[in-house]
Amino acid sequence: MEAEAVMSNEVGQHEAQGAHSTHSTEIPPQEVFPVLLGTLGEHRELNFFHYHIVDLPVILYDKEYGFDIYSNIEKMKESGKYVLSTTHKIVKANKPEETPTLDLSVTSLVCFQWLAMIILLVAFFRAGRKYKKQPLKPPKGLQNVLEAIFVFIRDDVVLPNIPSRKAAYRLLPYFVSLFVFILLMNLFGLIPGGHTATGALGTTAGLALTALFVINGTAIRQIGLKNWLKHLLGGAPWYLFFIMVPIEIISLFTKPFALTVRLFANMTAGHVVLLSLVGLIFYLKTFVMAAVAVPFSVFMYALELLVAFLQAFIFTILTAVFTGLAIGEHSEHSHQIEH
């Protein structure tokens, strides 16, 4: 990961929070780990190594004040409505206990989502144009990669797991975009200076929420509302409904919850291990530690690369599996017709 660069970068940031003094590289050993792990969260500005790129806009909504948009955090302070608390939280200026109802600020993670989106859209747009021009030519380069992903998702993820072929083809774009979106966000965390957007619960929860809607929306559309409600009984006799229905409803929500936590924890855990390994060097202040930490963190980095692909795949395939389960055997007949 960003290793030393992040280290010194974050050091500068933390020490000079608010005061904007540019360098102070000495931090006490006990501060090393909190500072390093602080890079994992969201930030209100984008930094690349030592360079401060941009302050991100702050968008706040409050029942009392309505919508407020500031171009950066300083502007927000100048407005006098909100201030930063001692724990770097945005609070109301007149009531220091209260935070705004909704903080819709563009954070570094949102920026990295946008980055992933833009790159993917450009790639897909270019590939799509090539396909429109000459659909019968064998694919080349970037087009080949996208087609491989597309065919992989279609043949190995969607079609084997979703029993209805029609629904599978309708959901295919969703699964493709889910996979590439998560994959690119995961990979951005491995580029020095990047942030892992999937390493925050907000992102993964948002994706899992779409998965929840896709799973149940598809099920209702395929088997009808009545059958879907019957599924809630879990196949038990009707008089057991007061046990089964709560359980089934809970299981309805645990699936997306498990997706959320799995992706988040996988992406975060690797980064925590990496940062801790690098942090050990600064904590112990010896170069001997580097001899141990560097090879091991290279190994961890390779593992992270694997995990980035694996978790994107797992999120996608589990969503597909859950969708298939939610549709259940009710569409068996349509399945048989296709064969």
Binding site: R262, A265, I314
Partner: peptide
């Protein structure tokens, strides 16, 4: 392999719950 990865992910998910 595919089934193994899925099952491993489910097991790992439970473990990660406890880690969280």
């Amino acid at each position: 392999r595919t089934t193994m990865i899925i099952a491993a992910a489910l097991i790992e998910g439970v473990a990660l719950f406890s880690c969280v």
